[in-house]
Amino acid sequence: MDDPFQGSAAWRGGEQREYPPQTSLMNDSRPASSIDPTLPLRAKGGDRQAFAELVDVMYPRALRFALHMVGNREDAEEAVQDTFVRVHRNLDRFRDDARFEPWLFRILANRCRTVLEKRKRHSVVIQYGDVPDRIGAVQEAERDWTEEVYKVLDTLPSEQREAFLLRHVEDMAYEDIAAITGVGLSALRMRVKRACDALRVRLTEVMRDE
């Protein structure tokens, strides 16, 4: 799983495909891309400024996803930086008719998984290092809510957290999430549903107390 370009488990097994897969699932329900579609192509052609613009535009979203996935800023920044290095190194493999964001998030999700795997091996406690500073200035009720959201998010299995973040925070279509994670649509829907159920159960009470 360390090399995102080798594909996730569902993509292995003898059959090699271009990314993203051309299937009937690619429909018009996908959210509109927030980047200029010519930027990746210009970057692929060696235009450094275009790549710099890509980083500029995508960095906040990538860092947000990584932070929510791995839980601390240092690891998140490292995962994002590593992702952009890999993207740049492999731009020549980026198909001209593909969309950039799912490709980027596929690599990023793999980097985050790698961070989480490493952490599991070293038994490091997950902490949201920025949370106390981040919520320091908000109202107490909002502070409690935000803390609770992070606590619940942290307790979700990483695959549920990943699916939930991609679907509800990054607003991606299930088809794109399937391409990013290599997981089938029905399994993805189940992961998102389970994540929503867990959040709903744990947060209903907090919301009532506000």
Binding site: Y59, P60, L67, D133, R134, V149, L153, H168, L199, R200
Partner: peptide, 17 residues
């Protein structure tokens, strides 16, 4: 609830440019 969670997670100020 999910809408509010999404808003909370999206508005994290530490991911500003």
């Amino acid at each position: 609830i999910i809408d509010k969670v999404r808003d909370t997670l999206r508005s994290a100020p530490h991911v500003a440019p």
